[in-house]
């Protein structure tokens, strides 16, 4: 318990140090563009691939499980859309990104710590937490909603693709289901969730990386801990935000 409180205190203090006015805005924007490209744009391909395949699988699984004359065919499209919009493209996709992006952040900052690059920044009189962490947090919070929208779009395309492959549904009924009783707030709900997840992923990974002590083995441990902890926090935040926004 004491250890957990100590870590929480360290995390809060680090965030206080990181989220501050940058020493130089031009350097901040330069770092921000770099981080958006490295953490966000580089993740686009994995988001697209996973979303297309999962969208296809969701549609096929639903068509298999609700294959009844009492349930209209458009329900397959409707359910696929709801799963993708409400949960898959935000929460599940961010859990996947916690693995990719979170480990990247923790290992990059952790390596900088053990190779004294962070000390070098501090010696120059630069706020190292602000210089290294804030662009990652802001960059991810700006770009994750874009990834979520891509995931929604490509997930639905995957589902449409399945409607052409699977004889239990027709493309027209699937498309009707996609448009049936559409609530645009669900898109905003997903985007808001993803922004919170982006903060969780980047800040927790940065905390574990920044506080690495030791060598390469400890960087690996920090990276794993960052992914585990941010995944747990994403799931916890999912429950809280769903309760607050949908019930």
């Amino acid at each position: 318990m004491n250890e957990s409180l100590h870590r929480l205190g360290e995390y809060v203090l680090l965030m206080k140090k990181a989220i501050a006015i940058p020493d130089r805005w031009s350097m901040f924007f330069k770092q921000l563009i770099r981080e958006i490209y490295k953490l966000g744009v580089d993740s686009l391909w994995i988001v697209v691939i996973i979303s297309v395949f999962i969208g296809t699988v969701i549609a096929i699984q639903i068509s298999l499980n609700i294959n009844s004359p009492l349930i209209p065919k458009f329900t397959i499209g409707y359910t696929t859309r709801e799963i993708i919009l409400l949960e898959f493209s935000s929460s599940i996709m961010c859990l996947i990104l916690a693995g990719k992006v979170g480990s990247n952040i923790a290992s990059e900052i952790g390596t900088m710590r053990i190779t004294e690059q962070i000390d070098a920044i501090e010696i120059m009189g630069v706020n190292s937490a602000n210089f290294l962490i804030m662009p990652k947090i802001i960059g991810l919070m700006l770009f994750i909603p874009v990834l979520v929208i891509f995931s929604m779009f490509t997930g639905i395309i995957g589902g449409i693709g399945a409607s052409y492959l699977d004889t239990r549904m027709t493309p027209s009924s699937f498309e009707y289901g996609l448009q049936f009783y559409f609530n645009s707030f669900y898109i905003w709900y997903s985007i808001i969730k993803s922004v919170v997840y982006a903060f969780i992923i980047s800040s927790i990974a940065a905390y574990f990386g920044y506080n690495v002590k030791g060598g390469a083995l400890d960087v690996g441990k920090a990276s794993t801990n960052a992914v585990v902890m941010s995944s747990i926090m994403i799931l916890l935040a999912d429950v809280i935000m769903t309760h607050l926004m949908l019930t």
Partner: peptide, 10 residues
Amino acid sequence: MLFQGSALFD
């Protein structure tokens, strides 16, 4: 400061 491992930014 000149660090033991140089500490250049990778």
